Simulated scan of single mutants.
Amino acid sequence: MKFQTGNGSRRPRPRVVTVAPALAVLCAAGLLLPLLTRVIGEVSPTAAWALDLAAHWQLVFVTGLTISVSLTVFSKPHWGLLLFLIPLPWLTAWSTAPDKGDGAELVVIAANVSVGNSDPAPLVDWIRSEQPDVLAIVEISNGFAKKLELDDSFPYQVVRPRSDPFGLALLSRHPIVAHSIVDDAHGVQRIEAKLNWRGNLVTVVAFHPRPPLTSADHVRRNENLAELASRLTDMPTVIMGDFNATPWSSAFAAPTRAGFRLVNGYSPTWPAAWGGLMGLPIDNVLLSRHWTATRREIGPDVESDHMPVLARIALDPLND
């Protein structure tokens, strides 16, 4: 008879623990993608497009890294060094507008209502409670536009509904003194309007590019934003809507260099399921250097696959 000596056979580790190191490495690499895209973009547009798509998921990467390292660090303490990467999503995002509370506020709301949605009642209820000055509606259809019934609140309107996802509307409490409908090479429109707000001439753009499903769409979205930022950098400007880009995207590189800043930060807006949990912050407000943000928030469920965004902004007297 043989007697077993020593510690005997070891119990196999749970599979989740064995794959944790690989997951930690994957998530760590994902957190570095925004930095990598800023280098690769100058070399290969196709590679930049692919990396940019992956870079959107920074909140998923930071969550995955935290969990996987926590499972690994007890057996391999040196893996805890990866936790120093946790702040990266807040360090690699393009900067947000400064917070100040001085001066009169302009309240703006951007809402992607989903082209298949024909019931504006939830949005209208929220709009009436918030009383914004300017409302940009993305993916507005003819059916939605006909039932909107906000003429009493917004006497100045530019409404261009469509049957595809690129219908737009811009509604204002303040006079629209000029506006234009600008189509890109593929027929995707944006609304550019000049408002008279308290004696100030303010440019507001309702913006919704094609999703970057191809390298060409990625490049076109970035070029459109770069052109807008370059042309409007010297005047008080608000660009708002569904950018199909997160704060880590190369889409905001050129606007940032021109002095523009995002407002709504990192809170997910799409998909709206479960309150946007682990989604992407692609609906936003982009401000020229003339503005500060006094309040920013994500709106309620408006029966869309997107959450709306609200910003209270004020002109910065130091940047007039």
Score class of each variant (00 low, 15 high):
L277P: 00
A311V: 11
H186L: 14
S215G: 13
A111T: 11
I140C: 13
N319Q: 15
A258C: 06
V134D: 12
A48H: 07
L315A: 09
A22S: 13
N117W: 00
L232S: 04
F252L: 03
P122W: 08
A111K: 07
R11A: 11
L53C: 11
V159Q: 15
P77Y: 10
H179K: 08
P308Y: 02
L195I: 05
G143V: 04
D183E: 15
Q157S: 11
L88W: 12
K76D: 12
G80P: 03
E192C: 10
T5C: 11
Q189S: 13
V16W: 13
P271A: 00
S230T: 15
W291R: 07
S141Q: 06
A145N: 04
N222T: 07
R13G: 06
V158L: 14
A104F: 03
E227R: 15
V107Q: 12
W270A: 01
T294G: 14
A24S: 05
Q4S: 13
S288E: 06
W126R: 01
N244T: 00
R295H: 09
Q131H: 12
L280K: 00
G6N: 09
T233A: 09
R162Y: 07
S288R: 11
R210F: 10
P308D: 02
M278F: 06
I313F: 12
N142R: 12
T66S: 12
V39C: 04
A104C: 05
V62K: 02
A20T: 08
K194L: 10
E223H: 12
S129T: 15
G279P: 03
N200V: 14
T66K: 02
P45S: 10
S68R: 01
I127Y: 06
V263G: 06
P236A: 04
W90G: 11
I239Q: 08
V25C: 02
